[in-house]
Design a protein around this nucleic acid. Structure first.
Lengths: 191, 191
DNA sequence: AAGTTCGGCAAACGACTGTTTACTGAATGG
DNA sequence: CCATTCAGTAAACAGTCGTTTGCCGAACTT
């Protein structure tokens, strides 16, 4: 049922999805839906959890690596690009419903993005470059990274619908931007 | 009719909007809709144009100002905050449909964001800090700024649904992030 | 003054919608 | 082996939907 929904949501919003539509796609009777979910919103929340689990794995993969700033940037962008390619439907779902019409789903996504920022912040604190940084500045930087990750993933999402040269340009741009941020970070004097 | 649609879209997706719904809200008969638009997608595109016109004005307002980096940052964040407050519905619409289920609307928004990046890039090129920057690096920076603006606007959007202390935290964070980017910019050595 | 466009209406079409109800077979557990 | 839960079904309910059609008055053009 989740798969059916995800498939339908490739070119549709959660808010415009219908119970009958989902069950039809899944090869079941309409009533069967209510055996598993009270709402379509509930199905949405379930999809959020499914989608974010893999993103979580991805983030940990990036953070766990050691290495200089440059290699870290390259690996991060690569991981994002591959993740979007391998989890198109989930990423598209997240991008679409993050500001979508279903409150509960929006809130679930935002809460998880917050947790990501916290996680990134904790990882940043361990790096030598962050010595002397206040809690607040670390959080600010972590949010900047998370937002940048989200923007980059969205860009990949729409690029991959079409050609791959565009992918490469996006990847190159993302790397440059991360380098610039990293430069600002090294010269940061605190707020 | 546009107003009616925008009002309905406060808690709905364009894809889940109905012709009858719009005309009912506007106090007209269903058939009247087809006098003005062939599609609901067409109404969406019209709303995109309406929404982006005011954003365009806002961007020009930010870019036109002279002054040091610090004051420019403060003014930029202020302008964004006020713009979101004064054009809630339009901004919400843009955020929601940027990755929404209606292709033509998505494309219209993305094309316009591209133009914004170009405009910002041109303005950046005029600043003394950008001497010696390649075209590519300038574009990269411009896209970073535009993405940051979009993220910040989205954050304001959800914060203003609730309390105003959250607004202030978002504004403060956005300012810090812009300062960090600006720092990286000053130390940039080219790619 | 005549013609034409514009923006509006009511009515009707069949198709599709969410949800409830009562029923069924299979698996599970004591 | 009996009871119960589980996951499914068909049928029916009253609504809502998008779209087309034919009609109408007002406004504008010439």
């Amino acid at each position: 049922m989740l798969d059916a929904g995800l498939h339908l949501l490739a070119d549709q919003n959660l808010a415009s999805l219908g119970v009958r539509e989902v069950t039809r796609e899944a090869g079941l009777s309409p009533a069967a839906f209510y055996r598993h979910f009270p709402d379509l919103a509930a199905l949405g929340v379930a999809l959020v959890e499914e989608s974010l689990a893999s993103v979580h794995v991805m983030i940990r993969a990036v953070l766990a690596e050691a290495g200089g700033a440059e290699e870290l940037i390259d690996r991060a962008v690569d991981v994002i690009e591959r993740h979007v390619r391998e989890h198109r439907s989930h990423v598209r779902f997240l991008a679409r419903e993050r500001h979508g019409g279903v409150r509960r789903v929006r809130e679930a996504i935002d809460a998880e993005l917050d947790r990501f920022a916290t996680e990134v912040g904790a990882a940043l604190a361990l790096q030598p470059v962050s010595q002397g940084w206040s809690e607040r500045d670390l959080r600010m930087l972590a949010e900047l990274y998370v937002d940048h990750m989200v923007s980059t993933a969205s860009a990949f999402l729409e690029a991959q619908e079409a050609d791959s040269p565009r992918e490469q340009r996006i990847a190159a741009t993302a790397r440059l931007q991360l380098r610039l941020i990293s430069l600002g970070r090294r010269h940061w004097q605190g707020s």
